[in-house]
Amino acid sequence: MPARLNVPKEVKRGAVVPVRIAILHPMETGFRYDVDGRSIPKNVIHTLTCKFNGDIIFRADMGSGMAANPSVQFYFVAERSGELLFEWSDDVGQRGSERATLTVTE
């Protein structure tokens, strides 16, 4: 599952940093039918976590009410340089992850 991250490369210490992620995923609701009339099973990314240097800074529990190709923006305070690690998994057990490094300047 490809994803696009939008994180500034360099920020000032203590700045509130916007972080945005968009993941390519159909977010099937389970209410749709295919051309042969068979129900398409529900398959959504139910959990998305973001860790910074190993600490969880954000988590989203999502349902079928999220639009396809879910995109989420949130904020966090950068006190030191480090790595942002996004991890997510969907209803059929597929997992994905994406990383970004963030450099904190004085």
């Binding site: 609701t29 969880i56 349902g63 999220m66 639009a67 989420v72 949130f74």
Partner: peptide
């Protein structure tokens, strides 16, 4: 959501380190 078949759209967990209690997303 008031009238979606599944009313709970999403829950976003924040921490004191979030700095700003704001989220942006897209819903159905």
């Amino acid at each position: 959501s008031e009238s979606n078949p599944r009313p709970l759209i999403a829950t976003f967990h924040l921490t004191p380190k979030s700095g700003r209690a704001e989220i942006t997303t897209r819903i159905r």
